[in-house]
């Protein structure tokens, strides 16, 4: 952890203007901004952790909990909203039993909402593991999740089978 953080911090001079970029670097490397990382950034830039926290919480991009194995972002831009985007987010919340911004207890799934990804002509859209899924419907949500869930179960089974063989 400390090493990873140093790798991010090293290229940046002690200048306040790099704060956003450093935070972006931390998030890219570690997936989220932990308390430890936050304090590390503050001490690198010689500003208070409260100042860093204030900036980090201002911007939607920064997360303070890790990503799930599968990360889902539901778009709620104007076009997606007009085409039923809220029903899509509702469906994910219902199926995964978490709210937007949350993560499942097994860390398998995390769910976020976004203002607009600029893909309005394919509304409503969701981004799952960086792949855009176009023209979603509540029914398609189940299909997509089942597809990914099956894969997960299959991986699990294979893992178990693998363990069985090695024993």
């Amino acid at each position: 952890m400390a090493e990873e953080l140093q790798e991010v911090l090293a290229p940046y001079p002690v200048e306040r203007r790099y704060l956003l970029r450093i935070l972006q670097g931390v998030q890219q490397k570690m997936g989220y901004i932990s308390e430890e990382a936050l304090e590390g950034v503050a001490s690198h830039l010689k500003i208070s952790p409260a100042e860093v926290y204030g900036v980090a919480t201002f911007y939607n991009q920064f997360r303070f909990i890790p990503y799930g194995k599968h990360h889902i972002v539901a778009c709620l831009g104007t076009a997606c909203h007009a085409m039923g985007g809220q029903l899509i987010l509702d469906a994910f919340e219902r199926e995964l039993d978490i709210k937007a911004g949350g993560i499942t207890p097994d860390h398998g799934w995390s769910l976020d909402r976004v203002g607009c990804i600029g893909c309005c002509t394919k509304a409503p859209v969701v981004v799952i593991n960086d792949v855009i899924h176009a023209k979603m419907s509540p029914f398609k949500v189940e299909e997509v999740l089942a597809g990914l869930g099956l894969e997960m179960r299959k991986e699990k089974e294979e893992e178990e089978a693998g363990e069985g063989e090695s024993q």
């Binding site: 831009g77 104007t78 076009a79 203002g115 607009c116 600029g118 893909c119 309005c120 002509t121």
Partner: peptide, 10 residues
Amino acid sequence: EGDPGAFMDR
């Protein structure tokens, strides 16, 4: 281009 529903600049 933060306006939801806009993608011209993109």
